[in-house]
Amino acid sequence: MTRQDAEPMHLTESTFTPENTRNILETACGIAGFDAASAVVMRHHTNAVYLLAAQPIVVKIGRPDHHGHIDVVGLVRWLQQQAVPTVSLIDTEQPLHISGCPVTFWRYLDQQNRIVSAADLAEPFAKLHACRAPVPVALPDQQITYTFEAISTAIDNNTILSAQDRAMLHERREQLAEHADNIRWVLPRGPIHGDAHHLNALWDKPNECAVLADWENAAIGPPEWDLATLEVHCRRFGHPADEYDRFATSYGFDIRDWSGYRWLRDLRELRMITTNARKSARGSSTAAEVLRRIEALKANAPIGWNIL
Rank of each mutant, 00 (worst) to 15 (best):
P95H: 02
I70L: 13
H129S: 05
S152E: 15
T86N: 07
I192F: 02
I192T: 04
R114F: 09
A154W: 10
P134S: 15
Q81E: 11
C131H: 12
H67V: 00
L169C: 11
R77Y: 03
F105R: 02
N182E: 09
I70Q: 01
Q94A: 04
G190F: 09
I90G: 02
A118K: 01
C101S: 07
D71C: 03
V76E: 06
S99T: 02
W78A: 14
D120G: 14
C131A: 13
A122N: 13
P191G: 12
Y146I: 00
R132G: 02
R77P: 00
A163T: 10
T86R: 02
S162E: 07
A133Y: 04
L169P: 07
H170D: 01
R173V: 09
G190K: 07
V87F: 03
L128D: 10
P102V: 00
Q164K: 12
Q94P: 08
Y108E: 01
M168Y: 15
H170F: 00
H129R: 04
W106L: 04
L161F: 11
L109Q: 03
V72C: 10
Q164V: 09
I151W: 10
D91W: 02
H197M: 12
Q164A: 14
R173G: 13
T159C: 14
A180P: 07
L128G: 06
L79V: 12
T145F: 04
M168E: 08
I115R: 08
D195M: 05
D91A: 14
V135L: 10
G100D: 04
Q143V: 13
A180Q: 15
E93K: 01
L121Q: 11
A133I: 03
V103T: 03
L96C: 08
Y146C: 00
A133C: 09
A126F: 07
V73Q: 01
L128C: 06
M168P: 00
R107I: 09
E171R: 10
T145C: 02
E178M: 13
S99E: 06
A163H: 11
V84W: 06
A154P: 05
Q111S: 08
Y108N: 05
N182D: 12
A150R: 12
F148Y: 11
F125C: 14
E123Y: 02
G68R: 07
V186E: 13
L96N: 11
R77A: 12
H97L: 04
N157R: 11
I183T: 01
H179C: 13
P191S: 13
R114Y: 12
A83K: 09
V186N: 06
V76L: 10
Q81R: 12
P191W: 14
L109D: 00
A130T: 04
P124K: 06
A196D: 08
A138Y: 00
